[in-house]
Simulated scan of single mutants.
Amino acid sequence: MKLKALLSVFVGSLVMFAVQAQDMSNEDISKRIKPVGSVHIAGAQAESAAAAGPRSGEDIYNVSCAACHSVGVLGAPKFQVAADWNPRIEEKGFDTVWQNAIDGIGGMPPKGTCGSCSDDDIKAAIEHMIEGI
């Protein structure tokens, strides 16, 4: 008997819900099912930041590259350390180093942690890291 009563309540709830849904406008339904929050991924930049205009190599380095390149994580060439950068540039050439940064190399994922960076942004960041060496 309890099962019949429970089933009756369940079916009644479904019918009531269906009737309510028919009375709702599309706008009401959109409001009802809209997300209650958003997700921020550390290291990722908001679209509005990317739309704010061109970024300098220094800005890109500070936001997306410094965490690894300031201390040489997993063998990353350190910021403005000629001994780290010169062998790479002399042996492979700047364009290969740049392409490796775009595609990813060793422990570095493609474009490092700057998913919103263009290829030219990556080039500017590398140029900043080797400036003066």
Rank of each mutant, 00 (worst) to 15 (best):
R55S: 04
A49N: 11
R32V: 03
Q45W: 06
Q45F: 02
S64C: 10
S70A: 13
V73D: 08
K4P: 11
M24T: 09
A76S: 08
A44I: 14
A21N: 03
L14Q: 02
I29Y: 12
V71W: 13
P35H: 02
I29T: 08
A49E: 10
N62M: 06
L3S: 05
I29W: 13
S8D: 12
D103I: 01
I33Q: 04
N26Y: 10
S30I: 03
G53S: 07
I41D: 00
V73N: 11
P54K: 11
A49Q: 13
P77C: 07
G75I: 15
V19R: 13
L14S: 03
T96E: 12
G72H: 07
R32A: 10
F17I: 06
F94M: 02
G104C: 08
S64R: 00
G104Q: 11
G75A: 05
A18I: 10
H40S: 05
I33G: 02
V39N: 02
Q80K: 13
A21L: 13
S64D: 11
H69W: 09
R32E: 00
S48N: 13
P87N: 10
K78H: 01
A46F: 15
K2L: 06
A5C: 07
V11A: 14
S38C: 06
F17R: 01
I102H: 10
M16N: 03
D95I: 03
K92N: 11
A67P: 00
V97W: 01
D95Q: 13
D84P: 08
P35F: 00
N86P: 00
F17N: 06
K4M: 14
L6E: 15
V9R: 06
D23Y: 15
